[in-house]
């Protein structure tokens, strides 16, 4: 099963390496990873998607906790949460296919953010399912390049993931 972990970490030199190194060293596979500043200066939030059984994920979380720079680890897959990923897709777009592409983009509530004579860049945000779906639809026109931010997630409601 896939688990989405939120990790609050002191934004110090090497902190990121410590975390990613731990995954490879102990044989845990990172599916994707997203990092950014939080509202508290000096504290970054990492969202890591990792595949594994419950005992494996428990071990991952315990090992992460042991890292001195890690302040908090929570498994957002265990609670109601909002998960999103942003993707930029460069798709082949000759004059004849543009309107078809445009229609698909609208259906998925995406945006065309760049156009050139023979290609377009599409921005789309959503869950994994949605992104897979639009990818499949655009594949037909020829996807030339794709870049994904990695999944980010927040707990639903007023609850927040805090440092302590």
């Amino acid at each position: 099963m896939k688990h989405v972990l939120a990790i609050l970490v002191e934004n110090k030199a090497g902190a990121l390496t410590r975390i990613s190194g731990l995954f490879s060293r102990r044989g845990f596979n990172i599916e994707n990873i997203a990092v950014g500043e939080t509202v508290t200066p000096g504290i970054a939030r990492m969202t890591i998607t990792v595949e594994g059984s419950d005992p494996v994920i428990e071990q991952v979380m315990k090992q992460l906790h042991k890292l001195v720079n890690v302040l908090k680890v929570s498994n957002l897959s265990k609670e109601p949460s909002v998960m999103r990923e942003l993707v930029l897709i460069k798709v082949r777009a000759e004059t004849g296919s543009r309107s078809d592409i445009q229609q698909i983009v609208e259906t998925f509530r995406g945006k065309v953010v760049d156009v050139s004579p023979d290609s377009m860049i599409i921005e789309v945000t959503g869950t994994e399912d949605k992104i897979e779906a639009i990818k499949m639809m655009l594949d037909h026109f020829g996807i030339r390049e794709i870049v994904r931010t990695g999944k980010v997630a927040l707990l639903r409601g007023a609850k927040i993931t805090r440092e302590a």
């Binding site: 030199a13 090497g14 390496t17 190194g21 060293r25 001195v68």
Partner: peptide, 16 residues
């Protein structure tokens, strides 16, 4: 050496 010893120390520091 901080990079090298990352997986074999409880923690390490490079003093800048």
């Amino acid at each position: 050496i901080t990079g090298i010893t990352l997986p074999i120390t409880k923690h390490n520091y490079l003093v800048k």
